[in-house]
Simulated assay, not measured.
Amino acid sequence: MSIFFPPFIYSFFLFTGTLISVSSSSFFGMWMGLEMNLMAFIPMIVNTEFNKKSSEAAIKYFLIQAFASAMVIFAAFYFYLYGGSFLSKSSNIFITLALSLKLGMAPFHFWFPQVLEGLSWINTLVLLTWQKIAPLVMMSLLFHDDVLLTLALISAVVGAISGINQTSMRKILAFSSISHLGWVTATMCFSRSLWVDYFIFYCITSFILCLSFWLLNLNYFSQLTLTPNLSDKFIIFINLLSLGGLPPLLGFLPKFLAMVVISESFPALGILIFSSLITLYFYIRLCFSTFTLYKRSAAWNQKSTALKNFFVLSILTSVSILGIFPLNLFNF
């Protein structure tokens, strides 16, 4: 006999687990919150999409997260065993590697695009934003400087290069998330608080994009060449270029603030800027090809976009377009 719980129950435990991890003052409480968060998100994956991809994504996500949690417990045990000695510093290395695996940072990113490909757009948004809060907060307290900066630079470069030949919008968001994680964790190495601002701006941009893809029923870039509606294309690509950090859109603001802080290390800043330029290159290339190519509308797009959906997306897109104006609040 199968028992069905409404999505509200899973969402409640999902948010509760994250809040426990963030607010806990003990290592055990942080780990317990991570496990509660994991066990609440897996039923959301399976119950939302009844297909083979969602089941495969749930199994992969569970195995990777369980292995990363085992690494976190081992690092905690190692720390309590050798705390106060010269070996205690290596426990921070284990914790940093375990949390980077949980986040999907390169070179431990192999599972992240595959899992994201099997999710609905709502679960995609949750995995891109909310599921990263607890590991990032733990990492900001327990990271190893050199290891984290190295992983950040690798993530920025790998996320930018791997997204060049992708046509699936979920995979593009996955590799973009890996690249942005590089910026977030690199900012974390130089500032204990600015990475939160960067992550908030990233969450806003990801929310706008996922909502746009969901309302417009878009999964692949080839679908954009099948629609004659230029307003839909404009909405998608303004938000994509904002996610890439093109000035003067909203996504440029957190990168500008991060560059001010990371300027202490010029080589790291150069690698991050280079990776961001690669990301902008393939966004602009896809934008150009989609606006110049046109085919007849396919069956999936016979229904025109609802007027209320267009107004919602237009308002959210205006947030991206006018995003540079908050720069005045920072006196730059």
Rank of each mutant, 00 (worst) to 15 (best):
F108W: 00
D145E: 15
M36N: 08
Y78C: 12
K255W: 10
W31D: 03
I3H: 15
S2C: 05
M32C: 14
D232C: 13
S275H: 08
T167I: 13
K303N: 11
Y61A: 01
C287R: 01
S289K: 13
W130R: 09
S318V: 08
E49G: 01
L19C: 15
S297C: 12
F310C: 06
Y198L: 09
L14Q: 10
A152K: 01
F266R: 08
P113T: 02
S100Q: 02
P135H: 04
L116T: 09
D232W: 10
F266H: 09
N37E: 08
A68C: 05
G245L: 06
K295Q: 15
N309F: 05
P254C: 06
N92C: 13
L316M: 11
L34T: 03
L14S: 10
A58T: 03
T205S: 15
I42N: 02
F282W: 14
R192N: 14
C287D: 02
I95M: 13
Q131N: 11
L293N: 15
T18N: 13
R296A: 13
F13A: 09
L322Q: 04
S21N: 12
F27M: 14
L142D: 03
S263I: 06
M44L: 13
S179R: 02
K52I: 08
L103R: 00
T18V: 15
E35W: 04
L216W: 08
H144D: 15
S162P: 02
S193A: 11
T290F: 06
F311C: 11
S168P: 08
L253M: 10
T167E: 14
S191Q: 10
H144S: 15
L14N: 09
S265N: 15
I64K: 00
Y61T: 02
S242F: 08
S11N: 14
T279W: 01
G163S: 06
S222D: 15
L34F: 12
F4G: 09
N47I: 08
N331Q: 07
W183A: 03
L218C: 08
F221M: 13
L240Q: 11
G159C: 03
M39F: 13
S179Y: 00
L250F: 14
I236C: 15
V312N: 00
K132G: 04
F288E: 05
W195H: 09
F74W: 10
I45H: 00
A68Y: 01
I208Q: 05
G245A: 06
M30D: 05
L316E: 02
S263M: 04
